[in-house]
C-alpha cells in the first residue's frame, strides 16, 4: 500500500464523496416526497390517479436505475429536454426511489387497523384529524425500518452515477486505476469512503429499529 498516493488523492475522493452525498440526499428527499404522495393516492384509492401511480410503480421497480439514467441523460436531449448530469442523477434517484418509498409507506398505512381509525372517529375526530394524529404517526413508525433499508439501497444505487459522467467515487476510482495502475490504493479508498457514507445510516437504522421495538415511538 502506497500511503503517499493515498494522501495525495484523499481530497479527490472527499470531493467525490460530497457529490455522492449531496445528489443522493436531494434525490432521496424527492423520493420520500413522491413516495408519500403515491402512498396516499393508493391508500385513498383516488380514481384515475391510482392507475397512474400503479403504472409508475411497476415501471420504476422493474427497470434498472442505469437504464433510467441513460434514457434521461442521453435520450431526453433528443426530444429537446436537456438535463445536466447532476439533475439527471437527482431525477433518476427520485424516480427509482419514489416507488420503493411508496411501497414502504403504503404497507405502513395498510398495517394500521381499520378499527383504530374507527375508534378515533368515534372520539369525534374529523377524517383529517384521524389521518394526522393517528394513522400517519402509526404508519410512519411501522414503515421506518423499510424506509431506512430503502435509503441504504438508494445510497448504494448512486454508484452508477459515474456512467453519466458524474465525478463520483466510482468515477474517481476508475480514473485512478486507469491512469496510475494504483489498483489496491484506489479500491481501498473507494471501499473506505462508501463505508463512511453508508455505515452510519445502517447503524442509525438498527438503533431506531430497536428503539421502535422496545420503547415508544415519539409523542
Amino acid at each position: 500500500m502506497n500511503w503517499e498516493f493515498i494522501e495525495k488523492y484523499l481530497p479527490m475522493y472527499r470531493e467525490a464523496a460530497v457529490l455522492t452525498v449531496v445528489i443522493g440526499s436531494i434525490g432521496i428527499a424527492f423520493a420520500i416526497l413522491i413516495g408519500l404522495i403515491c402512498a396516499m393516492v393508493l391508500y385513498h384509492k383516488v380514481p384515475v390517479a391510482k392507475h397512474i401511480v400503479n403504472g409508475y410503480v411497476e415501471l420504476s421497480r422493474n427497470t434498472p436505475l442505469l437504464a433510467q439514467l441513460f434514457f434521461l441523460y442521453y435520450g431526453f436531449p433528443k426530444i429537446g429536454i436537456n438535463l445536466n448530469a447532476e439533475l439527471c442523477g437527482v431525477a433518476g434517484l427520485a424516480f427509482l426511489g419514489g416507488s420503493y418509498m411508496s411501497e414502504a409507506f403504503r404497507s405502513g398505512l395498510e398495517a394500521v387497523d381499520k378499527i383504530q381509525e374507527e375508534s378515533a372517529l368515534s372520539l369525534g375526530m374529523t377524517k383529517y384529524q384521524v389521518m394526522k394524529y393517528v394513522v400517519l404517526p402509526e404508519a410512519i413508525s411501522i414503515s421506518i425500518p423499510a424506509f431506512i433499508a430503502n435509503i441504504i439501497f438508494l445510497l448504494k444505487e448512486t454508484s452508477v452515477f459515474s456512467a453519466i459522467s458524474l465525478m463520483d467515487l466510482m468515477f474517481t476510482a476508475k480514473d485512478l486505476i486507469g491512469l496510475y495502475y494504483k489498483t489496491t490504493e484506489s479500491l481501498f479508498l473507494l471501499v473506505i469512503f462508501y463505508l463512511l457514507i453508508i455505515l452510519p445510516v445502517s447503524v442509525i437504522g438498527s438503533l431506531v429499529e430497536r428503539r421502535l421495538r422496545y420503547a415508544g415511538f415519539g409523542n
Binding site: I115, S122, L123, M125, V134, E138, G216
Partner: peptide
C-alpha cells in the same frame, strides 16, 4: 358527524388505544 360523535362515546372489544401514544 364528528360533532355529534363527541357526544357518543364508544368502547371497542379490542381496546384500540393508540400504540404510538402513552
Amino acid at each position: 358527524l364528528p360533532l355529534i360523535r363527541q357526544k357518543i362515546g364508544m368502547v371497542f372489544q379490542s381496546y384500540e388505544l393508540f400504540p404510538h401514544l402513552n
